[in-house]
Amino acid sequence: MSIEVYNLTVRYDNKIALENVNVKVEHPSLVVIMGPNGAGKTTFLKSLLGLIPYEGEIKIFGKDPKKARSLIGYLPQRDSINTNMPLKVKEVVLLPLVSKSFTIKKEHVEKAKKYLEFVGMLDRWNDRFDSLSGGQQQRVLFARALVTEPKVLILDEPFSATDVKTKMELVELLHRLKGEKTIFIVLHDINPLVECTDMVMLIQKTLLSFGTVSEVLTPENLEKLYGTKVPMIRRDNVCYIVGGDRHA
C-alpha cells in the first residue's frame, strides 16, 4: 500500500518543469511539499492526478494515476474555481458524487452533510458558495475533496489567503485525518504542520531532498532550495523556519 514515483519528468513546451523525481510514500502518511514559486510543486501534484502528460512511472496503490482517480480527493488552488457560477454550498460538495449520475440519492446528501459537518460548515448548506469568505470557501472545498471518501488527499496550497483562525482550523482537520489517509500538501509555511508531518519533499525543478522533518529541514537544504539563508530555530528536536517560507 504505497504511492511510488519513478524517474518522473514533466515538460511544458519542451521546457523541463520537473526532472527525475523518485519517491516512495507508505500509506498512510502526511507529506509536505515545499519549494519556491515555479519550482514544480503543483506540476508534481498534477502528475499524481494524471492531469498532465509525464515521462516516468507513477503508481498509486499499484494503479496508474488515471485509473486511481476514485482513490484521490483533490483540493485545487482556490483561484482555479469559477465563481461566475452561482452554486450553493450543498451543490459544490455534491458535485463529485452526482456528476456521473442522473439523480441525487439520499446517500449522496448524507455524505455531503457528514463532511460539511466535519469541516464545520453544515450550517451554510443552503448558502451561496460565492457569498462565503475565502477561508469558509476553502473549508467547503476541503469537504468536497473528502466527500468521495478517498484514500489519498492532494491539497494545493490550502492555507493560501486564509486568516490565522482558518489556518488553525484546517490544521486541526489535517491532524484528525492523519493516520487514516495519505495526504500530499503543498505549503509555503510548514510550521503549523511540523509536528504531524511524516515526510517532507523539497522541490526545485527536481527533488532536492526527501525524508523526515528533521532529516530534510536543515539550513543547508533550505539555502539550496530558496537560494538564500533561511533562519531556523530548534525546539524539542524539531526545526522551525523563522517567518515561514522564503520565496526565491
Binding site: Y74, I81, N82, S99, I154
Partner: peptide, 19 residues
Amino acid sequence: YRKIMYSIFDPESAEASGL
C-alpha cells in the same frame, strides 16, 4: 447538465475526478 456544470465550476477537479 451536471458534468457541464462541474467542468465549468472547477475544471481541474472535474478532470481529476475522471471527467
